[in-house]
Design a protein around this nucleic acid. Structure first.
Length: 554
RNA sequence: GCGCCUGUAGCUCAGCUGGAUAGAGCAACGGACUUCUAAUCCGUAGGCCGCAGGUUCGAGUCCUGCCAGGCGUACCA
């Protein structure tokens, strides 16, 4: 619709120039937007103001020249006006909106899809929590954001692959192994000192017990370091499996699970280090190896191999990100917790050092989640009885409510997640508000069927009955859906879609309360059913991209 | 100290990349269920958009400087 208006303006300006009403027909891109205020029309353009300085003409005069030359071939317009400093406002006839409905029905679950990506290979990596403990709420937010960003980009024509990076190597895994082994020793009555910085949770004891029941005291009879690494592998593997299950329960599945250890096994890490040494961007100082990240905009250089010969986490991350590009991704998106923001520069540095562009690497920094219950903060400790894990939250409030709530905020803002609120079935909790629309329409359709209405399709006469204010509003809102999708994709901001759906839901509920869909007038009922099923499709379409279900009944 | 994020109605947040008179929900107050699901709707009230400058036809939005809060600033991940 916007493009049609823009074309109208373009043609009008050109013919104004040909007739000599305007000194030039050169202008930048025509911006057409939906005014905030209804009385300013359905669409508005500021083109006259933009052109004013170049043409050295007062904006209102330019606007007059353009409106005078408008040729409304399809008779879409009811009226135009020049307002304020030089806006041109367009008022459309109600019937101009009707074809949108046909489009929605025709495109169905593809309505709103755009080919922004043109098949470009893009990777979205998210959550990637260390396999040293269960996922918490913060990871849930990352999962909700990452998964729906991936969905939206895929919907917009990108070839998207989602990935979970398993940090199954390095010091934290070793500590995990030592923690389990110590608990294992305890089971055999050995006197052990359990350090503060080891993993304290009860699940560590459970692993020890499992290992004992599986293999008895075998671990005491072999080399201690071997036992530690056996414990580490056992624990990491089962925690990873649990994480995978928790995410599945949350509705998130990945295309690929990628192991950090595999980078070492394949020699990728040492290959990158050698390569960077050759390029003279890795040097030795104080017995450690440093990467010159400062040359790429980081505050200072960073260590990749410690004095003791061990590589840092950063070293494998360099290899990992290089590997991503080697796998053919043209763009790589990482979803990280805000507490990792200091890490962006150095990873970006490594990507540039590997010969890729800065803008091929995007980080979505998701701010922290504060868990509340009835307005009171829930202590994020492992004390018994307190809900801290993602799986606890999901089983208490439900998958849909949790996912939707995570997306009701720009990810750049910290989020208060209130467990009581999430369970409430009121307007305070917008998931149900949106889902209710879908269920209500499903109910109308069931009733319609009882009355013998089977086929709901486009009929000129019945669609023509749609001219109530609330009906036109609904259709207008639906016509904006493709733009919302597009801007969510470009900005990687799923919350735009969330808010749009709440708005559409609001329009629908208002309509529902004022008008009946099934009336005594068959023509009218049919037209309204046609429209309402379109609403249902848009709602379902949007909820699906957010990873939220669209129920037939509530 | 430096870096990133945030500051909009009493509370929780939007604000379409610079547009006209700043919008929702909750809470408050007043209304609407014999009718397709009241998990809904309608109305009233509520604002120095943190503060001060600047950029321009035009700023909640961009720039600079302050103020406040969160996070980060490892040879941890």
């Amino acid at each position: 619709m916007k493009e049609k208006i823009a074309n109208l303006i373009l043609n009008a300006a050109t013919s104004a120039y040909e007739k000599g009403d305007l000194p030039s027909a050169e202008f930048s891109e025509i911006e057409v937007e939906v005014p905030k205020i209804e009385s300013h029309g359905d669409f508005s353009t500021n083109i006259a103001m933009i052109m004013a300085s170049a043409l050295k003409m007062p904006p209102r005069k330019i606007a007059t020249a353009i409106t005078k030359n408008l040729i409304d071939q399809k008779e879409m317009l009811a009226n135009t006006e020049i307002a304020g400093p030089g806006f041109i406002n367009f008022f459309l006839k109600a019937s101009s909106w009707h074809p949108i409905l046909r489009k929605i029905h025709a495109e169905d679950s593809r309505y709103g899809a755009a080919d922004l990506g043109k098949g470009k290979k893009i990777q979205v990596e998210f959550v990637s929590a260390n396999p040293t403990g269960p996922l918490h709420v913060g990871h849930g937010r990352g999962a909700a954001v990452g998964d729906s960003v991936a969905n939206i980009l895929r919907f917009c024509g990108y070839d998207v692959e989602t990935e979970y990076y398993i940090n199954d190597s390095g010091r934290q895994i070793e500590t995990l192994g030592r923690s389990v082994f110590l608990r294992y020793k305890e089971l055999y009555g050995m006197d052990v000192q359990f350090p503060q910085d080891y993993y304290q949770g009860d699940y560590i004891r459970d692993f020890a017990k499992e290992i004992k029941s599986l293999g008895g005291k075998a671990l005491l009879e072999q080399d201690e370091e071997k036992s530690v690494s056996d414990c580490a592998r056992f624990a990491a593997r089962s925690i990873t499996a649990q994480i995978r299950q928790d995410l599945t329960d949350f509705g998130v599945t990945y295309d690929k699970w990628y192991s950090e250890q595999s980078l070492y096994d394949a020699g990728t890490v040492s290959a990158v280090i050698d390569d960077f040494k050759n390029k003279k961007i890795i040097y030795e100082k104080d017995g450690a190896l440093w990467f010159k990240t400062a040359e790429f905009g980081d505050e200072k250089d960073r260590v990749v191999v410690r004095q003791n010969g061990q590589t840092t986490y950063f070293a494998s991350d360099i290899a990992y990100h290089r590997n991503k590009f080697e796998r053919g991704f043209e763009r790589v998106i990482d979803v990280w917790g805000a507490d990792h923001h200091g890490y962006i520069q150095r990873v970006a540095a490594s990507i540039q050092a590997s010969g890729h562009q800065k803008d091929q690497f995007n980080v979505i920094l998701v701010q922290l989640v504060n868990l509340l219950r009835g307005g009171e903060p829930v202590a994020m400790s492992t004390r018994a009885g307190e809900f801290v894990t993602l799986s606890d939250v999901v089983s208490e409030v439900g998958r849909d409510a949790a996912r939707f709530l995570f997306l009701t905020r720009n990810y750049e803002s910290p989020l208060d997640f209130d467990l009581e609120l999430a369970k409430q079935k009121t307007n305070d909790n917008p998931v149900f508000y949106v889902q209710y629309v879908h269920a209500r329409i499903a109910s109308i359709l069931r009733k319609g069927k009882e009355r013998g209405i089977q086929h709901i399709n486009w009929e000129d006469e019945s669609v023509a009955t749609l001219k109530a204010l609330e009906e036109i509003n609904l259709i207008k809102t639906m016509s904006r859906y493709p733009e919302v999708i597009k801007s969510s994709a470009v900005n990687m901001e799923p919350h735009r879609l969330t808010f749009y759906l709440m708005g559409l839901a609001s329009d629908f509920h208002a309509y529902y309360n004022k008008h009946r869909v099934l009336t005594d007038d068959p023509l009218l009922s049919h037209g309204r059913l046609y429209m309402v099923t379109a609403v249902q499709k848009v709602i379902r379409n949007g909820l699906t991209l957010l990873g939220v279900s669209a129920p037939e009944k509530m």
